[in-house]
Amino acid sequence: MRHGSGYPGVTVALVTPLTDDGDVAEEDVGRLVASVRPYVDALLPALSTGEGWALTDRQWHGMVAATAGHAAGLPVLAGIQRPTTEQAVARARTAAGLGAAAVVAPTPYGPDVTQEEMYRHYETLGREGGLPVVVYHEREVSGNDLRPDTLLRICALPSVVAVKDSAGDPAATRELVAARPGVPVLQGLEHLLPATEGVDGQVTALANVEPALCAALHTGPVSDHTAALAAACARHGLDRPDWYRALKSELCRRGVLTTERTTGTGGAP
Rank of each mutant, 00 (worst) to 15 (best):
G79I: 07
A54Y: 04
V222N: 02
A227G: 00
L257T: 05
T11P: 01
P108K: 12
A207T: 14
D20N: 10
P45L: 12
H225L: 03
A100L: 07
S159V: 02
P170A: 14
V256L: 06
K248W: 09
K248N: 10
G267S: 15
A162I: 11
D28R: 00
L247P: 12
P158D: 14
W60M: 05
R31P: 08
W243K: 13
L157H: 04
W243D: 14
P221Y: 04
V133D: 01
R127C: 01
C214I: 08
P269H: 07
L32M: 09
C252W: 13
E123C: 04
S35H: 11
Y122D: 05
A228F: 10
A195P: 00
I154D: 07
T173E: 05
L176D: 03
E138F: 01
L98G: 04
A171N: 05
H191T: 02
D242N: 04
T85E: 07
G69C: 10
A212L: 15
R253F: 00
A100Q: 11
A92L: 08
A71I: 05
G99V: 03
D224H: 12
Y119C: 02
V222T: 08
V203L: 14
Y122M: 14
A172Y: 07
A105L: 11
V177P: 02
L189E: 10
V89Q: 09
Y109F: 15
P8G: 15
A102M: 03
I154S: 00
V12F: 04
L189C: 00
T226N: 04
G266W: 09
P194G: 09
L14T: 10
A156F: 03
R37D: 05
W60F: 11
E190G: 01
S166H: 12
C233L: 10
H236M: 01
D169W: 09
M63V: 06
G198C: 04
L44V: 14
E116F: 00
V209E: 08
D21L: 13
G129F: 02
A212K: 15
Y39V: 03
L157I: 09
G30D: 09
P106W: 08
V40P: 01
L257P: 12
I154R: 07
L238I: 13
G264S: 06
M1P: 15
Y136C: 08
